[in-house]
Design a binder for these strands. Structure first.
Lengths: 231, 231
DNA sequence: GGCGATACTGACATGATTGTCAATATTTGA
DNA sequence: TCAAATATTGACAATCATGTCAGTATCGCC
């Protein structure tokens, strides 16, 4: 498998004695870093934390492992960079979901969907879990106050909705709890959700139904407070 | 600390010829296994997956690392045994929660509380997460169908309640989703809950309030279906 | 074309960790 | 009291992963 690459490279220099074999690829530092992080992320997603080995990742990218050290100083540096990148991506996705393109806001259902989506997508949840398991979360300040931020945004919508319906202003903590529940559930879903669903005989569409069900549960909960029976 | 023992052992054979030093402790195989698993669990809980190193665990227990190999064959064997034990404990706790002592059933709120409790307790959630992250879950068949089992138990209660109130029988999937939501949320809570709560400025009692809030959300949801408004 | 900067490599050093083995101590039972 | 079984150990072997280094190839720039 991996030797196949070598046997492809070698014949290039054989033909005569024209050894233009050392066709070494040289990328920009930025692109090299990107490729390495991609490979590391993939390994992490498919094989778990133990899958992040310099030699393996180097092989995936098609470089030697010291090249990785060159770009990231150490394995720990690579891990930190991976965490930083993934956290930032996640943060962007979440904040982007609050104000979707055209600036118009997403429906609650879509919002919940995008939280689940962002976490189940690729190895995001796996990476974040691993961060927690190895106590690396403190470093990743990029996600700091993300929860508060989102919760506030949702809350202001609820307040507006309640005003419109002449309902008493919703409790701030109630909104926070809704957000926490969504986050916790999406997180748990990303890690054990598929397993639980499988065990319960639920297929892929069952999982989708579950998300919709949750979205509705929360929507109704909010409506009950912010749109008390009228008309 | 640990070197102190060595300095006591070494001179023993030298001093004169009274070498009663080799006071080797010999446990029953069962107890030795238990102690080793305890230490491994502790390491996993505090330091994450990478904390499970034979040498360290051996030091914790006060034995040499080959003793661990003797009892578990290999490191992988130790990991498997740890997973098996923790899964079994978890399963017992869950099934026990359904039918508490005296055989009388727990309230929904207590039930949810015990799910969260079982997962946040010690390193259970950490271990289960790690199982998922490293794809070791398939082996642990001890938790197979646990979800289905619990969901069924809850569902039969709901059916009874609905009959009593002449309400239409609840949807089986609705109950399953309630159980899944609880499981996912408890799982997520165990891993990122504390972090999220902290970030949002919530203290320990805030976390407790969150659990109560969730219990109520689900209770009300069930009631709305199984106890439709009646005099 | 030449030159400096730097992405990249192969070979090696280092350290850590799992696993093996022969020997030893302790328990159990006859 | 002796012997078999086995829990335990120290020393060693083997593997493997990270990290170092000196040198090489390639790019951008003058």
């Amino acid at each position: 498998m991996s030797t196949a690459e070598k046997t492809e490279i070698l014949p290039a220099g054989i033909a005569t004695e024209t050894r233009q074999a050392p066709k070494r690829v040289r990328r920009s530092a930025e692109e090299a870093r990107r490729l390495i992080l991609d490979a590391a992320e993939e390994r992490l997603a498919t094989q778990g934390p133990e899958g992040i080995r310099l030699q393996d990742i180097a092989r995936d990218v098609g470089i030697s492992h010291p090249a990785i050290l060159h770009h990231f100083e150490s394995r720990e540096g690579l891990v930190r960079a991976l965490i930083a990148r993934t956290s930032a991506q996640f943060r962007d996705k979440m904040l982007g979901a609050l104000q979707d393109r055209n600036g118009h806001q997403l429906e609650p259902g879509e919002l919940i969907e995008s939280v689940f989506e962002a976490l189940s997508d690729r190895g995001t949840a796996r990476l974040l879990s691993w961060m927690m398991l190895t106590d690396r979360m403190t470093e990743a300040s990029s996600s700091r106050a993300l929860m508060t931020e989102i919760s506030s945004a949702i809350h202001s919508r609820r307040v507006k909705e309640a005003e419109k319906n002449r309902a008493p202003a919703p409790d701030r903590e109630d909104t926070l709890f809704m957000a926490m529940l969504t986050a916790n559930a999406a997180f748990g879903d990303a890690i054990i959700g598929r397993h639980l669903a499988e065990e319960a005989g639920l297929g892929h569409d069952g999982i989708i139904r579950f998300r919709r069900w949750l979205a509705q549960l929360l929507s109704e909960h909010a409506d009950r407070h912010d749109r008390p029976e009228r008309g």
